[in-house]
């Protein structure tokens, strides 16, 4: 049967910290060093290499290179733990930590400790992106004080997946920020509430309203949550949903990124349309009006 198979890929050999590693041609350096810290890298997105926390040293290269996007080339000699690498990662964490609230960024605290970073060193007066949380709809919340400008939400909303183009990077430099057209509220934008931006946000700047409210109330307990992957109850496309359940309530919905149907993407119904199964479920009225 003529099912086209991709041609077999040749292998390239590189060394990572002196150890030889063989990778299929076209792999990135990151593929060879999985424990590298990453923030703006997304497994379903084209690398933007904006955060620079994954930089490594490649022999012969004037500057450090981002592991997430640089392709491995035959004979490449990569150092992931050199003085320069550690310095850059430390400083990137300090620069981010001093300007952005990383309190809900998975991995940030561990990396800050690992690289001995001190985000406080820039002083009390250091400029930050602190700003009020944007709560303009009942489904998800935008807390841009936690935004590291990784571009992932813009890419997920744009031509890489959703193609709704509701958000963009506006402004320039330190003032650049994620914005709808004319900074309009979401409800007045092209947003279709697929939540695919929430799916890829690495910092918690974008979060389900349920999560946001529960965090505010101190009732968000991730360690108590179960994650169960099932199939959406709406149309016949068959999207895989991972239900995050706490106390027998769905509190968040994601989708497996390696799933052949969704590639991690959902629509408003799959992402947020779960409430009907828990309306009237308990005395606690979850539905507000």
């Amino acid at each position: 049967m003529s099912v086209p198979l991709p041609p077999p890929r040749r292998l390239v050999e590189i060394t990572v910290d002196g150890e030889p590693v063989r990778l299929p041609e076209g792999s990135t350096i990151l593929d060879a060093c999985q424990d590298t810290p990453t923030l703006c890298y997304g497994d379903t997105l084209t690398p933007k290499n904006a955060c620079r926390v994954c930089v490594v040293e490649v022999e012969g290269s004037r500057t450090l290179v981002p592991a997430c996007s640089r392709r491995a080339e035959e004979g490449m000699k990569v150092s992931t733990d050199s003085e320069r690498v550690r310095h850059s990662r430390k400083l990137v964490l300090e620069l981010l930590g001093s300007s952005v609230d990383l309190s809900t960024t998975p991995g940030a605290a561990e990396w800050i400790a690992e690289y001995d970073a001190d985000p406080q060193r820039f002083g009390q007066e250091a400029a930050t992106v602190e700003q009020p949380v944007k709560v303009d709809n009942d489904l998800y919340v935008r807390d841009y004080g936690k935004c590291i400008m990784c571009y992932k939400c813009v890419d997920a909303c744009g031509d890489q997946w959703q193609n709704s183009f509701a958000i963009t990077v506006a402004g320039r430099g330190f003032d650049s920020h994620i914005s709808t057209e004319h900074d309009a509220p979401l409800t007045d934008s092209a947003c279709v509430y697929c939540g695919n931006c929430v799916e890829v946000c690495p910092t918690g700047a974008l979060s389900f309203k349920t999560e946001f409210d529960m965090r505010a109330a101190g009732t968000w307990h991730e360690e108590e949550q179960t994650q169960t992957t099932t199939i959406c109850a709406y149309c016949g496309v068959g999207c895989n949903l991972t239900l995050h359940v706490q106390d027998n309530e769905i509190v968040k919905v994601t989708s497996p990124h390696d799933n052949p149907v969704t590639h991690g993407n959902l629509c408003i119904k799959g992402r947020f349309g779960f409430q009907h199964v828990q309306n009237g479920r308990s005395a606690k009225q979850t539905q507000k009006d």
């Binding site: 904006a50 955060c51 620079r52 990137v92 620069l95 250091a126 571009y151 990077v169 320039r172 330190f174």
Partner: peptide
Amino acid sequence: DESCGQCVPCRVGTVR
């Protein structure tokens, strides 16, 4: 002023 804002070292570094 002129940093495009794309990467962290430049976006935040120029401010610091």
